[in-house]
Structure formats: structure tokens, C-alpha cells
Amino acid sequence: MRISEITQHIESIAPLAYQESYDNAGLLVGSPSDDVSNALICLDVTEAVIDEAITEGFQLIIAHHPLIFSGIKKLNGKNEVERCLLKAIKNDIAIYAAHTNLDSVHGGVNSKICEKIGLTNCQILAPAKNQLKKLVTFIPTEQAQSVQQAVFEAGAGHIGNYDSCGFSLNGEGSFRGNENTNPFVGEKGELHTEKEVRFETIFPANKQRNVISALLSAHPYEEVAYDIFSLDNQFETVGAGMVGELPQAMDEVGFLQMVKKQFGCGVIRHSPLFGKNIQKVAVCGGSGSFLIRQAINSGADIFITGDLKYHQFFEAEGKIILADIGHFESEQYTKEVFYELLTKKFPKFAIRLSGINTNPINYLI
């Protein structure tokens, strides 16, 4: 199987366009056209993981955290990143990462955290902005249905749990082609009017190329008139963090003890407790301090994340419990996300979870 088949499937769920500007998700080592027969899944790419791949004969490593975050000017093995790259290249091991793009989608990192806690009615905590566009075009009445269907199949028209969403308005269009035209209807050099449907629908910005390609292929006109508008609407199914509800409320200490056990935390750092029950829970895998305000505004009783700094605990302001369970601990089940995503699509492709604990933080108990 080619690497591109695997990466394209991952990116159909978590498009690279959804990654943060600082991120470096994607294929970091190897060629998309390379053939591989197996893959090793990990959270972090370390020398121990590379050695595991070499020993076990894995040709592809799929990680959550990118091995390369910043530019590399030399490759002489002076640090772990360079040593990992050298070993991978020498042993023909490809490396792929899906990071903040996998954080930002339903079914990704935060969905798995919600699943492990047992939350229901889960929604994106901070929906993305500037990720939606609107297409407006004009189609001859008889061809309207087929063109609309082609546009929908290319990825347009999804709103929440609904698909094929669009609006049509009947009207009349006019045009006149010059001597270099071959009009679908009417005669060149003559003004023509045609019964048309004004059709509009929305689509994710990252699908624009596919949507417009489908429109142009399905539309009967030589020259297709269409407009694209950028929208300020929030993209409710894409964004940072998630928030959901426990089926039954739990007392604060009992809830934190459950989370500590479920995520194998050496310790949980938290802001003052209120002596109240926990019902609504906000989560963000990894470093989630930037979502404290959104977690409060969501009405959550507690916000589960990692990497909180001392002064950030003051931001709770008696309105929410902030709980730092650790960066690694919050994201450790991301390996399961990859495994489930790939085995469902490629049931005969050999996939294994790395047995290496890559958590760089240890606790003295």
C-alpha cells in the first residue's frame, strides 16, 4: 500500500488545513509514493520508538506530535531530533504526524478524551472561524439537480448532522457569445435568455478546489458564472477543545479520582474545589490554557487539560475548576484514535501501537 493512501485517509478526517499556524503536521520523512506494508503508531517520535520500528521491521511511523517543529540547518546527529531523522532515513522508515488538525475534529483527540471520561452530548468548545465559504452559481433549470448533486458529493452542503443543504431560486439569465464561442443554448452573436436556477450552498474552505472542479465538470455551460464568499460563521464541527455532560453528576473528589485512574495520572493539579457536583465537563488534550475563558463561558463545572502554569490557575476566579492532568496523560489515547481510524478503513493493513512510554515527565510519589 502506498503511503499516500494512508495519509489521504487520515487527512480526509483531519485535513492539514485545520492545523494551527505553528504546527508541522503531514509527511515529514519519506515519499508519498513509497510502498509500505505496516505502520507503528505512537504519541511522540523518540530514538526508542525509531529503534522499536527498526527491530520490529516497521516501514512507517504515525505520530501525534511532529518530530520536526522548526527549521533544521544541519543533520549531523547533535540532538535527538537529528538522530531520529538520520536513523529513519538510513533504515527507510517514513514518519507522518497528525497534530492540531487531529485535535480540531470530531472523532479526534478530544473526542477520545470525552469517551474515556464517559461524556455525552459532546460539542466543540471553541468552534473555528474563517473556515467556511459560500458558493453561488446559476444553472439551467433542466440540469440544476445533477449539478447540485455533483457539488454536494464534492463536499459542499454540510450543516451539522445534515447534508445536501442548499437554496435554489428560479430566475432568468442572459448572455451573448462572440464568434469564438460554442454556446450550450442559443446562438453565437445573439442575445439569449435562459430559465435558470440560482443555487447557493456552503462548504469548508479546504474543499474549495474539489467543489469548484465538480461544479465546472457537471455544469453544461462553456463559461460558468459563480461567486465565492468568505463567511464569518463559526464552523461548529471543527475547532479547539470539547464540552460534554456526564450521564449522572459526580462529586468533585470522586470525579477527579476517576479521571486520575482512567488516565494513569501521577498527580492532578487543580484549582480550589467548590463542594458541588460535577455535571458539565470541558476538555482539551495537550496544552489547553488558551481555552480557559471559553470553558467558563460554556458553563462547564470543570476544565480538564494539561500544561497549566501557576498564574493561570487564578483565572478560574471561583467560576470553574481547572484540572491539569498532564500533557502526555491527556493525549495518550490518541494512539487509539489512529488505530481505529486506520483499521476500519484498511482491515488487512498491519498496524501496531508502540510499546514505548514516551512521557518525559516522571513523578516522585
Rank of each mutant, 00 (worst) to 15 (best):
H99D: 02
L75M: 07
S70H: 15
S4F: 09
V283Y: 11
F199N: 03
I54D: 12
S111W: 05
T358C: 07
A94Y: 03
F290I: 12
S168C: 14
L322V: 06
S31A: 14
G241A: 06
K90C: 10
G166T: 05
P32T: 14
L125A: 10
E223N: 01
K188I: 11
L246S: 13
P15K: 04
G299I: 11
P66Y: 05
I212W: 06
A53D: 10
K345G: 02
C165G: 07
P360R: 10
E11Y: 13
V253N: 14
E179W: 01
Q59R: 15
N121C: 08
F328L: 10
C122L: 10
D35M: 14
G177V: 08
D23G: 02
L67K: 07
C265R: 05
A48K: 15
L291W: 00
L67R: 09
F184Y: 15
T181I: 12
D307N: 12
S12W: 08
E200K: 00
C114Q: 06
V49Q: 10
D34M: 13
A282R: 06
H64R: 01
R269C: 03
I10E: 01
N362Y: 07
G189R: 00
K260N: 15
E80W: 08
A97V: 10
L256M: 15
L135Y: 05
A205F: 07
K276F: 04
S37M: 07
I89R: 07
T141W: 01
I296R: 09
T305I: 07
D34Y: 09
F167V: 01
L364N: 12
R83N: 01
N357G: 07
Y339V: 06
A126D: 11
G186I: 02
K260D: 06
E187L: 13
S146I: 12
E329M: 10
